[in-house]
Amino acid sequence: MGAWLWLFLAGLVAALLAGWGRAPWRWRRRIGRIGFACLLLLLILYTVFPFYWAVVSSLRTGSALFSTELWPRDPAWDNYVAIFREQPFATNILNSVLVAVATVAVSLLLAVAAAYALGRVSFRGRLPLLFTVLSVSMFPQIAVLSGMFELVRAFGLYNRLGSLVLSYLVFTLPFSVWVLTSFMRELPKELEEAAIVDGARPVTLVLRIFLPLLAPAMVTTGLLAFIAAWNEFLFALTFTLSAEQRTVPVAIALISGASAYELPWGNIMAASVVVTLPLILLVLVFQRRIVAGLTAGAVKG
């Protein structure tokens, strides 16, 4: 069957190439459009299919799991029940939420103050400082691992969620500063000048004028920092030990079956769907915001 398919495709391409130059313009346009639509469909299939397949597989148990039919015939929720029963998956989710929320809150608080200074005030050393912040966000995490390990132990945070909040600041903080600064610079100058003439102090300025205006930017930045913290793996793997302290990515990576060669794929797929679904919903709802945030730092910088 495979060979015939290839032959058919090759024939189609050959026919198109041979007839292209002689075909009337209207036809060419139509074929071009159909081709473009096919390409887009293929693209959507490519980006969405792996997740779709995870959903389908998560709804199959027993030998049905090994079926390659594209539609789950008798969807079963056993895998979903199993991940919450066989391991502290609910606790893991709670851990991830706590860590991500705390990390985002601390980063935003520190970053919004810093972004005011870096985005609105011109002083000597501003540019080098900005570049330093940018290069910290490019740090390989492994480069701070041993130093961070020592720090975590010194604070008595090993195998506690606090160790993750502390270490996640390495990437969420510089990122937030960078993105918020680029948003801060876009706000009109007149606003601030009017307030300064009225004798407003910098703190009032930030709290009363910039904070409300920056609210959308903070939602964007917070969202991106949240996703980064939610997805982090290396620190979470290294600084937590017991199953109850793990975050979701580590819990999923370490799901194992009766033997090393028999991974419970149904459970793994169910867990994957549970932690990914909220993210996908977030992304679909805040699509425009996220795109703006992702490109804000890079393009204008």
Partner: peptide, 24 residues
């Protein structure tokens, strides 16, 4: 729709995408 579809792989945690593909 296409832009949303394109964002999906980006939003999926790396560990999860690794597992999903390992299964595939």
């Amino acid at each position: 729709l296409l832009r949303a579809a394109v964002l999906i792989p980006w939003a999926i945690p790396t560990v999860v995408s690794a597992k999903m593909w390992a299964w595939m």
